[in-house]
Design a protein around this nucleic acid. Structure first.
Lengths: 282, 282
DNA sequence: TTATTTTATGAAATTTAATTTCATAAAATA
DNA sequence: TATTTTATGAAATTAAATTTCATAAAATAA
């Protein structure tokens, strides 16, 4: 079964009556939905059109159109043999696991196409262009993405910090200026430390960007700009793995966009660093 | 190449100027089109919206919406051969860049299916199972992967280090025992610091695992076990980005495999940590 | 060559689809 | 029991795709 259908099935219990009607219709007619309109689906599931639109948001996908795309992709891939992904089995060989992880990571990255909002992304890039200092903050599994962001943006001339140390960050945040940026990374959006520092950064006048799931979490509400990652937990072990990939994919995009926009000035410095690396290698 | 793209290519000569503009844009950006509107595509190909609609008819598909569906299906399935690689253009919008990065990352991950050797992978997992201490070491862009590895393996009870500090590592390596593991991460396999520490670790009797490109680099030759990442650098900016994803995908696999094999004993500790995280969140 | 018809195209109008707003009723909380 | 929050559908709005219509260029006929 496709990852999207699995997700719906899992969330079914959390849904309201209306949402459940929609979810159940989709689960029993997955191949029909990609070519339906909101109106048709609304009629079939006996709900309003508005509820269909809302349903998509509720499972972390930005629009009905993207939802259909995602669903179709899932259905297509599952049929095409690639590696019909079922969660981990006792008897899996190491190589089986490799294929499953690869497949899951790939799927997660692709599905971020559906969760990330275009306007929010544009706003984030704009905010970063204006900033001098950027703080990346995440804890636990999100430290990797924070670290990666800090490294990348330092390379193109930003003052960055990306320490997971809460208290260190408290000493740094007061130095943020009006146009500077705080990027809080938390899958759930409920991580206390992240929320506290984000709030603190906002008080200093910095722009707060959140990289988190699309739910009504505190971090989500608090942030000026929200970059949403898809919520997809296949196997609980794989779940935590794939979310990191998606965070990194977003960081990559921010970096590349800023790089792209800053253009030549950065490029010179970049090339200089590259040459020096080459030289040291000899 | 997908059947739809093939068709367009074949018909190209028959097309009018306007149709050719559209066809050419689609051929050079197949991964972008499925999420574009007629307006966007019209603008990109420098034609009118009406012409986009007509183009679809002209190649025998009844509506633009169906055309996109078809194309997406094709692109998804055809993913095996990602030889036609995206490069960045001056006029790319932020969202274009996002789509390209996503596509590139996804492609890189999938292509690691081809570069990673099954036996080497099995050997690596076996070595890790036997180890108590694991050192992850990479510099520059590879620090992210090293850090991630350190974090993951610590979670399942290993003694790990993953500092990019060369001298710190020199003080740690002498404590490695016979079955311990040193994982050196370097895309080129030529990074001096990594080679030196790997050599040092090997002298202590540790097993050296390299995550690197498949070339005859010093690191490649020196390592006991080599986990190869595909070498694919189209655009030099995207190149450095995607390589990190592949490294992480391999780390993920190692982690998951070891987790899988260690089984229940680790699981208990894992759950304990998970519960505590939940509790602290409140 | 010149007049007439056909074809290709973009601008504007129309139709269709999706989303948002707003009012209301139900549920949760104080 | 009063107040706030949440969930929902109807209606309004916005966005996307298609069709119509006018025009200019090419093809054909006189």
């Amino acid at each position: 079964m496709s990852s999207l259908l699995k997700l719906i099935k899992k969330e079914l219990s959390r849904f309201s009556d209306t949402e459940r009607k929609i979810g159940e219709f989709i689960l029993s007619n997955p191949e029909l939905v990609p070519s339906m309109t909101t109106k048709e689906l609304a009629k079939s599931a006996e709900v309003s059109e508005a509820s269909v639109t809302r349903f998509c948001r509720s499972i972390g996908i930005n629009s009905f159109r993207l939802f259909k795309m995602q669903l179709m992709k899932d259905v297509t891939v599952a049929n095409g043999d690639l590696t019909t992904f079922t969660s981990l089995e006792k008897k899996d060989s190491v190589y089986d696991l490799f294929r499953k992880v690869t497949y899951a990571n790939q799927g997660a990255i692709v599905s971020s196409l559906a969760s990330l909002d275009r306007v929010q992304l544009e706003n984030a890039v704009e905010a970063l262009i204006k900033a001098k200092k950027v703080i990346f903050y995440g804890v636990g599994g999100s430290v990797t993405a924070a670290y990666d962001g800090g490294y990348k943006f330092a390379r193109i001339g930003y003052q960055t910090t990306s320490s997971p140390d809460f208290h260190y960050n408290i000493t740094v945040i007061p130095h943020l200026q009006k146009d500077d940026v705080f990027i809080g990374i938390s899958l759930s959006g409920k991580t206390k430390n992240v929320i506290e520092l984000a709030t603190f950064a906002k008080e200093q006048g910095a722009t707060v960007i959140a990289i988190t799931k699309m739910n009504r979490s505190p971090l989500y509400k608090l942030a000026d700009i929200t970059l949403c990652v898809p919520s997809m937990e296949e196997d609980f072990r794989i779940g935590t793995i794939t979310s990191r990939m998606v965070q990194l994919n977003i960081i990559d995009t921010l970096y590349l966009s800023v790089f792209h926009m800053l253009g030549d000035e950065v490029l010179t410095a970049f090339k200089k660093a590259q040459n020096e690396t080459m030289r040291l290698r000899k």
